[in-house]
């Protein structure tokens, strides 16, 4: 049987009525008010081979590979040792890192290689530490193949840093340190503060929208476990 896959270029030539008909014949349940852009996406997502008979007329566009441009090559690695952190919201930070190939070979080939880890530390508490292990820091073990994680914070608000470390025997060696990162207080904590009084200021803040802001309201439902990036 003469079969083909739908391409975007072809679908974009069809009228909205023809798109709806095609979706129906493919068994897709499309709401009547769905924007045609989304109808096209739905049709493309079916990713099924369809009978040429479903195409109203022979149209070469329908058999062209969609968006068939050559892939552009970006480096897989930059052969540098670094760690970066980007703040997503009061609950999550995205961190990614790389270790220079030579260093990697050196550490991982050593008999006392104890693995890599990230150390998350509060900078607010640093002056009190004087080099000792602080209760305001904790470590997350990472695999040699890992290169990015989403991290959640033990408590929100404050200045933090993330260090990329390797364990050599019993010694922790810091390979890279992220720039300091200030994490904001989450809204549920702020709301507790706001609800504590009935002052004009609280009323003003409520008039400004405090209770209705469309922001990440609570981080309670968010797992505190760091998330490995696939």
């Amino acid at each position: 049987m003469d079969e083909l896959r739908l391409t975007r270029s072809y679908l974009e030539t069809l009228s909205t009525g023809d798109l709806a008909q095609l979706a129906e014949r493919l068994g897709l349940d499309i709401p009547s008010d769905l924007n045609r852009i989304f109808v096209i996406e739905e049709l493309l997502e079916t990713d099924t081979e369809i009978d040429r008979a479903l195409i109203p007329e022979d149209n070469e566009l329908a058999v062209l590979p969609a968006d068939g441009d050559a892939k552009l090559h970006l480096p897989d690695r930059y052969n540098a040792t670094f760690i970066e952190v980007l703040l997503r919201d009061p609950a999550w930070v995205f961190t990614f890192w790389e270790i220079r190939s030579q260093d990697r070979d050196f550490y991982e080939g050593a008999p006392d290689f104890g693995g890599y880890h990230l150390r998350l530390s509060s900078l607010d508490a640093l002056p009190l530490r004087e080099g000792k292990s602080s209760p305001d820091s904790f470590i997350i073990s990472v695999e040699p193949t890992d290169s990015a994680w989403y991290l959640s914070f033990p408590s929100s608000q404050g200045l933090f840093k993330v260090e990329l470390c390797v364990l050599k025997g019993k010694n922790e060696i810091v390979l890279a340190v992220s720039p300091p990162l200030r994490v904001p207080m989450n809204v549920s904590a702020l709301s507790v503060l706001n609800s504590q009084d009935d002052s004009p200021q609280t009323k003003i803040l409520n008039l400004s929208g405090w209770d209705d802001f469309h922001v990440l309201r609570t981080v309670d439902h968010v797992s505190r476990l760091p998330q490995r990036c696939e």
Binding site: L74, P75, Y78, A80, F82, E84, L86, L87, R88, D89, P90, F94, F96, E98, S147, A148, R182, P184, M185, F213, H214, V215, L216, C229, E230
Partner: peptide, 29 residues
Amino acid sequence: PEFSSWKEDGYAQTWLDSTNDWMYRHLLR
């Protein structure tokens, strides 16, 4: 002022999730 944006969750989720986080490694380097 506090860290914020005008998109959906009020912070930076729009520009940082599993669909787009690949780009920052290349961009920052």
